[in-house]
Nucleic acid binder design. Structure first.
Lengths: 229, 229
DNA sequence: ATACTTAGTGTACTTTGTACAATATTAAAG
DNA sequence: CTTTAATATTGTACAAAGTACACTAAGTAT
């Protein structure tokens, strides 16, 4: 049976675009490659899919091996299939993305030696990346810009407890536009997925803001309201 | 150089979900397979990607070879990468979709003998399909339901000149819910992408409705307004 | 002329979006 | 203790969009 499928020198890979948010900056997870081609260059975490693993499984394995991050929920967003993406042959890559809160993150440490190191880099001044990874990144950014307006993915980027100003700052960063404070609060609170806590921000040298958290229970009850800005 | 990439017995394929609309029914393009596995079964048009063609190119070639349809704009929407999708080995498939007007369509005629025939089948009572094609179809349907509300893709399904009632019927079919006639008209006309023609419907045994067409020029000027229902 | 079928239309109400600026609270500095 | 500086918090009026709802108009067939 198996013999009926033709064999090609074709390979699948996975590339991961992982967004994080820290100190007022939107960041993306990069690695420094330790293999040819593009040895020593910066790239998105990515590697080849094994023959006996699903692509979702492979995405998790590869992210772990290259960065040490585990149990991250990633979503597939586009498949890049140009013939000459990879200088050594035909490689089709399925790109995944995720967003996560940085401070909940353990240390970054590649588990294989395909990568020299893994680190967060600000999205704002991203250097040129290996292969077509700059394009892949651009497509991911475009995707989350749209997604953030109808699904509460932004909460994944914040610490568990956050202030409304932090949340607004994050939206402004991702959407790359200024939002009105009063309207933003009205809309967010109305959306009904925030839980107000009896706690305040600490360690700031000005009026402390109330803390909120994302209420996953409430979110479950909505199906898919949209946020529009 | 080429030798550095490992070789796997892994294969890419493309599957196409092509929607059409005819006689008040939403349809999808199927083939009857002429090859093992699933010989004689119904399936989405799909085949293997060649090593030296991009996946977008392959999608068009494959659709043509299996159905005779040419120059259809298809969009990639999901990549299916479970290990056992294909009984003969590892096949990862990139799924594409498109929607088109049926009456502008030439005859369906497979150009290779991988398919015995190609034909339109109503979406309403779709039979079981080969491989995981039923799942692929379901995902495509979900996708266009969402897309139709923010991009005027529905027009691709209608003849060039159409009445508002036909347009409404199509929306109701895809969204699978009843819409208010007055509100639907208000919203559509307001959206500013229809051109009213000096012509009426012909051959109906009741009051003839005005004909409209989709005004691509006007659409270009909007960037991305959303239609919500 | 009548009956039948679909086309075509308007209004009141509700909800949502948007523009806009003053007061309140806290910590730090003096 | 007073002042300053920084950010938090709040409301209102207006505009735009969504929604519910039912009758008349026009053309065809008999």
């Amino acid at each position: 049976m198996e013999a009926l499928l033709p064999k090609f020198d074709s390979v699948f890979s996975i590339d991961c675009v992982i967004f994080g948010f820290d100190k007022g900056e939107l960041k993306v997870l990069l690695i420094e490659r330790n293999e040819e081609p593009f040895k020593d260059c910066l790239a998105l975490p990515g590697y080849l899919v094994e023959q006996n693993e699903s692509i979702d499984f492979a995405a998790n394995r590869i992210l772990y091996e290259l960065t040490g991050l585990k149990d991250i929920f990633m979503e597939q967003f586009y498949t890049f299939g140009e013939v000459n993406r990879h200088p050594q042959g035909r490689v089709i890559t399925v790109a995944y993305y995720a967003i996560l809160r940085l401070n909940a993150t353990k240390e970054l440490k590649p588990v294989t030696n395909y990568a020299k190191k893994a680190f967060w880099h600000p999205v704002a001044n991203l250097p040129e990346l290996a292969f077509d990874h700059s394009q892949i990144f651009a497509k991911a950014l475009q995707k989350i810009k749209r997604k953030i307006t109808y699904q509460p993915i932004a909460f994944e980027l914040l610490p568990e407890k956050f202030t409304l100003s932090q949340l607004q700052m994050l939206y402004e960063l991702i959407l790359n536009k200024k939002l009105d404070k009063r309207n933003f609060r009205k809309k967010m609170l109305n959306f009904g997925i925030l839980k107000e806590l009896d706690e305040k921000q600490k360690g700031v040298s000005y009026r402390a803001a109330k803390l909120y958290k994302f209420d996953r229970r409430k979110y479950g009850k909505l199906f898919q309201k949209e946020l529009t800005f």
